[in-house]
């Protein structure tokens, strides 16, 4: 423990500093997401609004994929929300550390919550003594991520609009997901979840409103939990990147 506790400013910049190296991974992902957004048939302002309003990479990409498939609106919303369900876990995990933070400020904590800001802050809070200004480390981290995400996706949107359709850039969406999915598979039930959901989605793709897709996803998760045994401890994924 240090003699004097760190100031808000110290904490904020410690958060920025801890987060900057991660941008090597976040920026390309933001560029890909922006480029994918440009493949969907919508005005540019709306593509930019996705990053501000949704602010979650995997969900944004999945929405573009489903919009391109002309899926029903309700299915698109439900899918994106299912992808983002993990934020409930992060919210629950980080809340005890921010118990001195006023509710109004916690609403901003919530808006900025991402996989990386959560992971970095939890590690920091775990290793430092409690401090009523704890949230400033979080804001340093989360605002760095937010800024890079907005810049990266904006560049991607302009890039994607300038490139011709014959480049098949919509194929970048499943390829990106492929790069994300393997680190998330930690145990045998995880493999089962992926296999059941993937095969099920192909078999059920003819069903109306993309219900086959949602059914396959739920079946995959249920199958994984059903075969879970000792030593298959599932844990909260740390990154969606």
């Amino acid at each position: 423990m240090t003699a004097s506790s760190p100031t808000a400013r110290d904490l904020f910049f410690a958060g920025v500093k801890a987060t900057l190296p991660l941008q090597i991974g976040v920026l390309p992902f933001a560029l890909i997401t922006g480029t994918a957004l440009a493949t969907a048939d919508m005005p540019t302002w709306l593509a930019h609004a996705f990053s501000l309003v949704v602010f979650a990479g995997a969900a944004q990409l999945a929405m573009v994929e489903l919009i391109n498939q002309k899926a029903a609106g309700g299915i698109i919303i439900l899918t994106a929300l299912l992808i983002n369900l993990r934020f409930i876990m992060y919210s629950a995990a980080i809340a005890p550390y921010l118990r001195y933070t006023p509710t109004r400020i916690r609403a901003w904590v919530a808006y900025l919550l991402t996989d990386q800001a959560y992971a970095l802050s939890i590690v920091h809070y775990d290793q430092t003594p409690p401090n009523p200004r704890q949230h400033w480390f979080y804001f340093g981290s989360a605002l760095t991520l937010w800024t890079c995400w907005q810049i990266g996706t904006s560049i991607g949107i302009y890039l994607g609009a300038a490139l011709p359709d014959s480049w098949s850039l919509d194929f970048a969406i499943p390829l990106t997901f492929l790069g994300l999915v393997f680190p998330l598979i930690r145990n045998r039930p995880g493999w089962l979840a992926g296999a059941v959901a993937g095969v099920g989605a192909v078999l059920g793709h003819g069903l109306p409103y993309n219900l086959g897709f949602l059914g396959a996803v739920l079946l995959g998760a249920v199958a994984a939990v059903a075969v879970e045994g000792r030593g298959d401890q599932s844990e909260v994924p740390k990154h969606d990147r």
Partner: peptide, 19 residues
């Protein structure tokens, strides 16, 4: 909580393979 832990893998796979 256990079900939610498998959703990301299931959703990504259900988007990848059909594509």
């Amino acid at each position: 909580e256990r079900l939610m832990a498998y959703l990301p893998v299931a959703i990504l796979s259900a988007l990848i393979i059909p594509a």
